[in-house]
Amino acid sequence: MNRWSWWLAGVAGALGFAFLYLALIWSPPEQQMGDLVRIMYFHVASAWTALCAFFVTFVAALGLLLRGGERWDVVSACSAEIGLVYTTITLVTGSLWARPIWNTWWTWDPRLTTTLILWFLYAGYLLLRATLTGFERRAKISAAYAIIAFIDVPIIHMSVTWWRSIHPSVVDDSGFHMPPSMAGTLMFGFLSFFLLYLLLLWLRARGAWQKLEILRLGQAVRGLRLREERGR
C-alpha cells in the first residue's frame, strides 16, 4: 500500500464509523418497522454499490474490446469480484430484513429476485474466467460476456417486475416516504460503501496488475536466458 491508499483507507474508515453512528444511533426508528429499518441502510447502500461495481465491469469490458490492453481486463475482473461481495451483503441483509417484517427468509419481490439473478450472472462471470485458458482469450471472452450480462440486467428487472405485478403480490413495494434524516443517512451510507469499494478496487487491481508484471518479467527473463543459451 502506498501513501495514497493509506489516506483513502483512513477516510473510508472514518466515514464507516460515522455511518455506523448515523445508521444505528442518530437516525430515528421508523413508525411501523421500528429499529428494523436500520438494516435498510446497509441493504440499499450495498445494492447501489454493487450496481456501480458491475457498471465499472461493463465499462472496462467495453474498453478492452475497443482499446485493448490488459489493464481493462484486470479492472473488469476485480470490480466484478467486489461487486459480487456487495451483492451477497445485499442478499443477506435483505433476507434478515424480510424475516421479521414478512415472516419469511425469501420473498419473490422483484428487486430481491433481480438481485439474486445478478448474483448468479456475476458468479457465472467469475466461473467463466476461472475455466478459460490463455490470458488473451480469457480477457476477450469474459469481456463479451460481461457486456451481454450488464445489458441483460434492466431487461431481467423489467420482466421480473411484470411477472410479480401480474401475480397477486404478497408485498406491496410502493415504498415508504423517507424523512430527510433517513434519506441523508442512506446517502451517507452509500457514499462510505462506495468509497470502500474504490479502495478495495484500487488495492485488488494493483495487486493483480503487479502479479501480471511479475509474470511478464518472468517471461522476459526466460526469453533472454533462452537467447543466451542458443547464442553460445
Binding site: G134, F135, E136, Q219
Partner: peptide, 10 residues
C-alpha cells in the same frame, strides 16, 4: 509491425 503474445509471452 505485427507482434503477438500468448499469456504475456512474446
Amino acid at each position: 509491425g505485427v507482434s503477438k503474445a500468448f499469456d504475456l509471452r512474446p
